[in-house]
Design a protein around this nucleic acid. Structure first.
Lengths: 142, 142
DNA sequence: TCTGAACAGTTCAAGATTAAACTAGTCTCG
DNA sequence: CGAGACTAGTTTAATCTTGAACTGTTCAGA
């Protein structure tokens, strides 16, 4: 590959990522979960409120409302009102929700693990190091 | 970061990728393009037929139909019937479509370039090498 | 040539997403 | 306290997406 521009590199990475997601999706669906719902469940421990989730997942609030509704109906999430701020609902994973989330992660581990197996141990470590650098949020210097 | 599982690494990467996309999206919208449409335009040279695009973009055929309709109406894409196979339409970028696509890529270059600037030249080269390995499609050994 | 399978692309209807507007609770500052 | 600004979460209505079914075309094999 000719030396790509940053945008081309981003696109290559994006397509790889989406390829893995598409690979995994049917199997995850069989667990009764959409990939987007998996992302939500994965954030729940650190971001237990809907508005908080909306920010963390870069997703509009109404979308979160509807996803939470579905997840609650499916028995993956429990909502409880927060005594000290009556506007908010604290969301928690039910045991079934956690189990399903972990099963999904296992499927993802397996699929992306197959790709990572193409790399040496050193390359995998380097990739981790690099991704941590890239993922870091930098304060906008205004 | 504790050594993450493959799925956690994938998720870290996915979130970084989506973060860049969210960063870029408003500016791209001002050009009159959705990000999804940008991906479509970017594939057009190599995949000039809708069904072909649907496969390349891992997207259902009706979605492509509607996106192409919009892109044609916006003057970014031209459709012409293919004489030797009357089922198919060949799609081509109009000059305006190519210009807009390139402007979008420039925005992406700028945004992802800012992240890449956190890496050394050696790390960037290593990242490219690694992503090429990960992105490669392997034949399923059945 | 004909028949049936396969493919390109579209339509339609059901379902998902989301911007805008809303309700209701909290907080700040006089 | 009380007014106004802000935040959480929902509703509504418009838009977007997509599975299923369809039309029309091509192609392989009898």
């Amino acid at each position: 590959m000719r030396k790509p521009s940053p945008g081309e590199l981003w696109t290559l990475n994006f397509e790889m990522t989406m390829g893995v997601m598409a690979e995994v999706e049917p199997e995850v669906r069989e667990l009764g979960l959409e990939m987007k719902e998996f992302f939500l469940l994965g954030k729940l421990d650190d971001h237990p409120y809907p508005a908080d989730l909306a920010r963390a997942l870069i997703t509009p609030k109404p979308t979160i409302t509807f996803m939470v509704k579905r997840l609650e109906a499916a028995g993956f999430v429990k909502r409880q009102t927060e005594a000290d701020d009556l506007r908010r609902f604290r969301l928690t994973l039910t045991p079934s929700g956690r189990k399903t989330m972990e099963a999904t992660r296992a499927i993802l581990d397996e699929a992306f693990g197959r790709r990572l197996a193409r790399l040496s141990a050193g390359e995998r470590a380097e990739l981790l190091r690099i991704l941590v650098l890239l993922a870091e949020k930098h304060a906008d210097p205004c």
